[in-house]
Amino acid sequence: MQLITTIQETTHELRKSIQGTAGEIRSREGGFTLVVQILAVLGAFVFLLPLHAGLMTSIKTISEFAQSLPMAPPEPGGFSISPWLAALDILGPSMINSFAFTIPAMVFSAVLGSLAAYGLTMVDWRGQVGLMAIFVAATFLPKQAIVVPLSRFWSIVDIHAILANLGPINLWALPYIQDYHATIIELIITHSAYGISICTLLFRGYYLTIDQELMEAARLDGASIFQIYREIIVPLSYPMFAVVLIFQFTTIWNEFFYGLIISAGSQAAPVTVALNDLNSGYAQLYNRQTAGAFIVALPTLIVYLLFGDKFAEGVK
């Protein structure tokens, strides 16, 4: 009996002291949260300031720009949307180019990456570890290291000639098909190939979380390796596809180096290269340049606005 009373008393004392400490921690936490909030606001401010300055610059005339602070809004007389119109006019064709190779390349690299990861992760066969190591090594490949062989490759492999002689129809004789589209195809192939390694890695990480018993059940049910991929793995991969497609879109859209080398001044230049041309030259039209920068950033911004939550879910 005495033991029980002592235990009850002790528990009561303990509870009181824990509540006291918890109160302290909570108010200390409150203070801590406030500091974090202030830092977050400051950080957001620092990030948004250049954006704001760029936006302001892009809607001013040149004389207005020269007279005012970058982040100050334009005076009524100095407001103009002509930088935007000019930038659109200049960048328009190359934006179409960029869409033309970015979308196919992102789809191809995602699909091929998923297939490769499936074969390397969900199916057991000899030598797959070595092959996986090669894929991992490929993600570290610096663009500069292979750009010389790459450009030599594209000078040897004449896409234009190959497609001209393929089958009964000469592709280049068709309406709306232009010669520089061959370069677009080269860009598609290059970006797909370069992106496969990272896509494979991303999918592999995801497939490792899928229970192997699911594969075994499906095989006992009589499904072939490819049927399992199509009917079970792909539907389960939708979150990862969202991540990979978004990632590849932004990577390929924003890419500059290969776009520059492979298009080499032709009409097939991607929008990043065209923007760079806009920013060079003797006369620096800052309002037009900032407008151009916004235009180039717009598609990726829209992608993140529309699909950002799926991306966040997928990488969880």
Binding site: E213, L220, G222, A223, S224
Partner: peptide, 29 residues
């Protein structure tokens, strides 16, 4: 190979196909 053997298995974790309905799960085999 497993798919050639006329065998059915009940797994400890059930290994049901999560994206399919019960009907689809049962009819898959």
């Amino acid at each position: 190979r497993p798919q050639e053997r006329d065998i059915a298995m009940v797994f400890q974790s059930y290994a049901l196909y999560p994206h399919m309905t019960v009907k689809e799960n049962i009819s898959f085999g």
